[in-house]
Nucleic acid binder design. Structure first.
Lengths: 168, 168
DNA sequence: GCTGAAGACTTCAACTCTAAACTTCGAAGC
DNA sequence: GCTTCGAAGTTTAGAGTTGAAGTCTTCAGC
């Protein structure tokens, strides 16, 4: 009963023993992807913590910045993009409101709706995170030359297109 | 205030406007990675649901199979590998015990420890999921030829090594 | 052998998310 | 105009996770 996690190759070797019809090459890609994403999440999480931000807050800040000035979105839209229920959005915004990261007001053109906006403090937090994150990302990719980076990007986008059409 | 998510390129263009010192090529790789992983998680989640399994249960089954026969692990080890607290592990095992997927007994060689083992039903569930999942993964990679698959795997593993040393 | 300290799991309270019922507003149909 | 239906958010109850405190076991020092 070992404590350290088996290496990717060990893992795939065991999978093949347990289930013969497995393509090792496919498995190598898929499992590397999920391991990589999990560890990157851990790394990002640590960085966020040093800035006093939770992962949940960071996700919302990103969406608000991503629409560009004047940095406004409806809660339902944010919820959809993050894969959350509207109820979860309500609570997140409550907390971020208390932290001074966002504003919330009724949409006067359609009073059913609510408008969530970014505060200056929220925008400043986003910038701080981006400065840290881009340094980390550059570190992450330092072993890859420009050609390899482009290649990797292309391959990932082809998978992304495929999975996107699958989900529709 | 748009409802659809911006494309990857649109997103990066906006990020660059908001924060000039950003390398678009790096950003392209990193954001494609996270989008891809999120959507794959949604796809896997749907598949699991059709088999009456939760993502949490699937994670634990994977770890147990991954150590090979006799499919036993200590709760603390599983918790570490999944990035959970021991408390969460206790509750997960409670539920999986009730579902008949695992067993739990004291380790007689060291009575502080507990041994979690896989039941035949748990092993069967793992196989069912793998059959579905490998079909999906083959679909996901269908646009890539063998050379591209190998390339992608290699590049991902180089990133994986990098982030792993970073976390130590 | 006894005692104190450390390790592994469990218990408990607080927090976050989901699902479902509820409230409010706007738009159609009559 | 009044009613009904649908859309957007909020509220509430229940499930899962975390962090801290608690319990039980082992081991080292005496």
């Amino acid at each position: 009963m070992p404590d350290p996690q088996p290496s990717l190759d060990e893992q795939i070797a065991i999978y093949q023993r347990e289930y013969r019809d497995l393509d090792p090459q496919v498995e190598r890609v898929v499992n590397a992807l999920s391991r990589l994403d999990r560890r990157m999440s851990v790394a990002y999480g640590r960085q966020l913590a040093t800035l006093g931000l939770s992962g949940a807050e960071w996700e919302v800040l990103k969406e608000l910045v991503m629409v560009g000035s004047p940095y406004q979105l409806w809660p339902g839209t944010i919820a959809k993009r993050l894969g959350l229920t509207p109820a979860a959005m309500t609570h997140r915004i409550d907390r971020m409101l208390a932290a001074g990261l966002v504003t919330r007001e009724r949409d006067e053109e359609n009073r059913v709706r609510v408008i969530v906006g970014l505060t200056d403090e929220g925008r400043e937090k986003w910038l701080q995170v981006m400065r840290q994150a881009s340094a980390f990302e550059e570190y992450l990719l330092q072993d890859l030359n420009n050609e390899e980076r482009a290649q990797l990007g292309d391959l990932l986008i082809r998978l992304l297109d495929r999975v996107s059409t699958h989900l529709d």
